[in-house]
Simulated assay, not measured.
Amino acid sequence: MYIVDSLYSSSKNDNKEIRYSYRMISESFLGGQAFGIEAERQDLIEGNVVQIERDLIRKISNKEDKVKTLLNLLHDYQVSPIHLVDILGEYVDNYVSDFCF
Rank of each mutant, 00 (worst) to 15 (best):
G31I: 13
S26M: 11
I87A: 08
V85D: 12
D93F: 10
D86H: 10
M1L: 07
S11A: 03
E40Y: 13
G36P: 03
S21K: 02
E38K: 11
R41L: 06
M24E: 02
V67L: 09
Y95C: 11
N62V: 00
H83N: 13
L56T: 07
E90K: 13
E64D: 03
Q51F: 01
S97T: 11
S21A: 03
E40R: 05
M1G: 14
Q42S: 04
S9C: 14
D43L: 04
V92Y: 14
D76S: 15
S10A: 07
D43F: 03
S9Y: 02
Y77C: 12
Y77W: 15
I25S: 05
N72A: 15
R41G: 01
L71T: 02
L44H: 01
F29M: 06
C100H: 12
L30H: 02
N15W: 03
R23F: 04
K68I: 12
Y22M: 03
V79R: 05
R19D: 00
N72V: 14
K66P: 12
L44S: 00
S10R: 01
E27P: 02
K68T: 15
F99C: 08
H75T: 14
D5R: 14
Q51H: 06
L73E: 07
G36K: 00
D5C: 05
Q78C: 11
E38G: 07
S80P: 09
I52T: 11
R19T: 00
M1N: 11
V79M: 12
Y2M: 05
Y95N: 11
F101Y: 03
T69Y: 07
P81R: 04
P81K: 08
F29E: 01
E27I: 08
I25D: 01
F29C: 03
V92C: 09
D5N: 11
L88T: 05
Y91G: 09
D86F: 09
K63W: 03
Y20N: 00
H83G: 08
I52C: 06
I45M: 13
N13G: 05
S80L: 03
Y91C: 15
K59I: 10
V4Y: 15
I45P: 15
D76N: 15
S10N: 03
I87S: 14
F99P: 06
Q78E: 09
